[in-house]
Design a protein around this nucleic acid. Structure first.
Length: 193
DNA sequence: GACCAGATTGTCT
DNA sequence: GACAATCTGGTCA
């Protein structure tokens, strides 16, 4: 169903490049009950200093410490007290940058994910950062783990992701005009057009 | 120790 | 389209 594990070097490149190339790859969370995951169809890049929307823009703190660590690590945080957002660090140790995984196309362990999300509608399963985290059972335990050797990993796909669209980021109040959001054109699992 | 803001989602109108 | 839900970490005293 999916290809080889993506090596650490993949994440050590420019943030925008990694965010763009992550599209079409497989994201898998290896749960005790079985693997869950699917194809990445939407990402957003969060740069370091110079990008006011990024958590790392105002220096290192306990919460964003993962972003200042090595590349290829999971950065998870809770938002609005309700939802989790899953990011992958990259470009490190040069810059404290990360990529937000906003949506995936469900492929693997769909029964498990529908149970966690309490819905049967595939298009509503992982079409947003909070939904994706809930469907894949992602929480603060994942924070700081490697996406190469940890429970959540990324794999090469055997198929062409198709046309990629560049757009403005969603749900932020600063620097919202920057074209740092990427998604696969005409894919119904993308959170929003 | 108090106060505040937030990379969202589901529900109601 | 508007709004509430609900908690973690940052900031300031």
């Amino acid at each position: 169903m999916y290809g080889d594990l993506i090596p650490e070097e993949f994440y050590q490149r420019d943030t925008v490049t990694v965010a763009r190339e992550l599209l079409g790859k497989h994201m898998i969370h290896h749960l005790p009950a079985g693997p869950v995951g699917g194809v990445v169809v939407e990402t957003e890049a969060y740069l370091g200093p110079g990008d006011p929307a990024s958590h790392s823009a105002r220096g290192k703190t306990k919460r964003n410490a993962v972003m200042f660590g090595p590349a290829a690590c999971a950065y998870v945080y809770k938002i609005y007290g309700i939802h989790f957002c899953f990011n992958v660090t990259c470009d490190s140790p040069v810059k404290p940058a990360a990529i937000l995984i906003r949506a995936i196309e469900p492929k693997i362990g769909i029964e498990i994910m529908t149970r966690l999300r309490n819905t049967d509608r595939l298009t509503n399963l992982c079409s947003g950062p909070g939904k994706l985290a809930q469907a894949m059972d992602i929480n603060l335990d994942i924070n700081g783990t490697s996406v190469v050797t940890g429970p959540v990993r990324f794999y090469y796909a055997n198929q062409d992701p198709g046309e990629i669209v560049v757009a403005k980021r969603i749900g932020i109040s600063q620097a919202e005009h920057l074209p740092l959001r990427f998604y696969i054109a005409n894919n119904r699992f993308v959170s929003r057009k």
